[in-house]
Design a protein around this nucleic acid. Structure first.
Lengths: 159, 159
DNA sequence: ATCCTACGTCAACAATCCTGACGTAAATTC
DNA sequence: GAATTTACGTCAGGATTGTTGACGTAGGAT
C-alpha cells in the first residue's frame, strides 16, 4: 500500500493523473457499444445524462455544465429532439426558457446507457465498500467549486 | 455523509457518474491555458504525459494506452517530433520499433503542464489525506484490468 | 420605451477521431 | 531460405465534436 503523506510527492500526483485518465477512458467507453448502434456519440450521451438527472433544466444550465458552446450543444440537442429522446417545454416563470426533459424513449435509452456504466462502478464499490467515502472526498476536491454545488443540488432534489 | 452500502443503489451510481465527469473535466481543463498558448491540443498533452511517464516506450504501447488509431496518433506525434518535443530512437532488440522519449524541451513543456494539474490534485490530497487510499482503490476498480497492470508497472519502474 | 437575457440559427473553420488500403523493413516461423 | 507476421509509416476521405462571430426574436427587467 503506497504512502499518502500530507504533502503529496510527484509520484503520487503522477499516479493520480494516470488513474483519472484510465478510469475516465474505460468508464465512458462502457456505453459506446450502444451509442454506436444508434449512430449517436458521447456528446449525446452527456446531454441525455444531465437532462435525465435534472429534469426541467433550462438550456443555459446545461451549457454551463458541459462547458461547450451554444452551437455545439444545439447540434446535439436538435438531433435528440428530432429523434424524440428529449422534449422542450416553455418555462412558466420565464417563458424564454426551454426546459428540457427526457421523453419516455429518452428515459429508456438513458437507462440502457446507464446500465453499462453502472456495472463498472457497482463492481468497484462492492469490492471495496470502505473505500467509497475516500473516493468521493477526493473527487469532490479535484473538481471546481461550481461542480460541487451542482452535485449537492442533484443529491437533494428540491422539487 | 452518504451511505455506502455493499449493494450500491442507483443514487450512488449516478453520483459517481457526475463526479467522474466533473473531476475529469476540471482536471484536464487545468492545462488548457498553456496548450492554447502553444497551439497544441489535449491529444498532444496525453502523448507527452505518457511518453514522459515511460521513456523508451514503443509506438504500439502508446497506441494501446490511448486507444486511438495509428493515424490519429501519427498526426499528433509527427507534430511533437517536428517541434522537437519528442525524439524517436530505433529499438535495439527489435529494430522495427521507434522508441519514444521526451527531448529536454519536451520535458520542460510536460513539466509546465504537469504543474497546473498538480495544484488541483495536491490541494485535494492535502485537504483530506486519509481519503487518498479510498480514492485510489475505487479508481483502480473502475478501470480495465490492462490499465491496472500498466499502473503497477509505472509505479515500479524496472529500468 | 429601453435594455438585457435566453434562447435559435447561419456560416465558416479547426481539432480530433475514424475506416480502409497500401508499403516497407525486420522479426519470426516453417 | 521462403513465407508469414509484426511494427511501423502514409495516403485518401469522412464523421464528430468543438470553435468564433454575427444576427434575429421573444420576453423579462428597469
Amino acid at each position: 500500500m503506497p504512502d499518502t503523506p500530507a504533502q503529496p510527492n510527484e509520484a503520487d500526483i503522477r499516479l493520480a493523473q494516470d488513474m483519472l485518465f484510465f478510469a475516465y477512458r474505460d468508464f465512458t467507453n462502457a456505453a459506446d457499444v450502444i451509442l454506436a448502434e444508434l449512430g449517436l456519440g458521447r456528446a449525446h450521451h452527456r446531454a441525455l445524462h444531465f437532462i435525465g438527472r435534472m429534469p426541467g433544466m433550462p438550456v443555459s444550465d446545461l451549457l454551463s455544465i458541459l462547458r461547450i458552446t451554444k452551437q455545439s450543444l444545439a447540434r446535439v440537442l436538435n438531433e435528440l429532439v428530432a429523434r424524440d429522446y428529449v422534449a422542450q417545454h416553455q418555462g412558466r416563470t420565464d417563458r424564454r426558457q426551454r426546459l428540457l426533459r427526457l421523453t419516455p424513449a429518452g428515459q429508456a435509452l438513458e437507462r440502457r446507457l446507464f446500465q453499462r456504466q453502472r456495472d463498472r462502478i457497482a463492481a468497484a464499490y462492492a469490492a471495496e465498500p470502505q473505500a467509497v467515502d475516500g473516493f468521493r472526498t477526493i473527487m469532490r476536491g479535484i473538481m471546481d467549486e461550481s461542480a460541487r454545488i451542482y452535485i449537492d443540488e442533484a443529491e437533494h432534489p428540491s422539487r
